[in-house]
Design a binder for these strands. Structure first.
Lengths: 243, 243
DNA sequence: CTGTATCCGTGTTGATACTG
DNA sequence: CAGTATCAACACGGATACAG
């Protein structure tokens, strides 16, 4: 290769310039017109996609993001939020006066990457090395319902389900169109599940009988127990690759 | 998978120093049961997903992979191939005697990540910062056809199209089920396009009239010109975010 | 309490040169 | 052609320290 060098736009990368660091959007690029390559430039950095996942059900504060992503340090989270904001995937907003706190919220386009997140998750769930017994954030549990629901069976008997997951609360509408999730306090639901994400996952995905999980104190059900028994069967895991 | 040493999580990061380097499969992990997080562990490293993209239409040699991914250095390609093989996403095979060369081929499960690649690409194509005029590999062009085809319109008049893209050749069957792509020499096609991936992309996605591209020597058409004129209209780009 | 900006040890990435 | 070896830059994550 003579002059066919890749043009690097590194340019001024010195120290933290003076007082105005500016938006340094100096990420790595692939120099590839392929949309997939650009997607990786946008959210291929470590943690980025998981941050988006956490925000999938509405705006969150910095500390709430950290809670859903233990292992992500504050400085890296700050960098990722800057990058995602610069890319137009999220915005930081100030909640109106009584609250007056800053939250991070996906842009409409940011929300639209849910199908990609789901496709990745659905594919990786078949990996031989996937371990579903690891910790799980509330958001990823709710997202897994949206990803894995058997729409046909859900449509046979729609239901509204409440979730009390520690500090997170959700209401899910489950019907033939899939699962719709909102961050709101359960009210007038067919039943409500209370417990940790891992306990609920153990029942829905790990095959633990609901009664057993209740007995062990992992989850508790209030409301229509029969509907709850049905709910936990609506999310079939795809077969692992060797089977 | 031979050495299935999936050493995972635990709080302590031991220094991998006492024993010799070994095959360190000790990738970064997220310690998260979410399938999406696991997908990122499997192919979230830089270049991994693009390597899978290149292999989407059949086995390739080391040098063919490099050709489709300029900017990826040999040592990193080696590492990625090792990682993807260990993850069960691809295998390295020896072609039978006359050839007797090594090729890398996706496993059946590896091929199944195409929907995820497509979802990412479809989403990122709407990014304000996406630049479709960058270089493009032959594989990503063909994949983009599979991703972007308007099935309804394609079904109205199915066709078989040949592609002569430098060293790469393909035949695509375009109908109401989408686009099926095989790496084979065009024969008995409705028409055949010859040129570089960027030239063809300029016509299909950049809005350049086919006649103009032919006049400029970017592409050449042999066969049914009318079908070709129709073909280049079958792949509508989604609107960019600000519009 | 909510974030942001440092330093710093370690590991990963990538360009170049080199070997079978 | 198909990778290795070496080395420099940088990204990661922990631990602060700092600002509102």
């Amino acid at each position: 290769m003579k002059s066919g060098k890749v043009i690097k736009r590194d340019g001024a990368r010195e120290k933290s310039q003076e007082t105005r660091p500016e938006k340094r959007l100096d990420k790595r690029w692939y120099d590839d017109a392929c949309g997939t390559a650009h997607a990786l430039e946008l959210l291929g950095e470590r943690w980025s996609l998981l941050i988006v996942r956490e925000l999938m059900f509405g705006p969150l504060r910095f500390s709430q993001l950290r809670a859903g992503l233990p292992g992500l340090s504050a400085n890296v989270l700050t960098q990722r939020l800057e990058g995602l904001e610069a890319a137009g995937i999220l915005i930081r907003r100030m909640l109106p006066p009584p609250a007056s706190v800053q939250v991070y919220e996906l842009t409409p386009w940011g929300y639209e990457c849910e199908p990609a997140i789901q496709a990745l998750g659905r594919w990786a769930a078949r990996s031989p090395s996937h371990d579903p017994s690891l910790p799980l954030s509330a958001a990823s549990l709710m997202l897994s319902f949206r990803t894995m629901v058997d729409r046909r069976r859900a449509g046979e008997r729609p239901m509204t389900v409440g979730f009390l997951l520690e500090p997170d609360v959700f209401v899910a509408r489950v019907d033939g169109d899939g699962v719709e999730v909102r961050r709101e306090m359960p009210e007038n639901t067919d039943f409500t599940l209370r417990g940790g994400p891992r306990g609920i996952a153990a029942v829905v995905y790990g095959g633990m009988p609901l009664a057993e999980a209740e007995a062990a104190g992992l989850v508790s059900v209030s409301g229509d127990q029969t509907a709850a028994e049905r709910f936990v069967t609506l999310f079939p895991l795809p077969p692992k690759v060797g089977s």
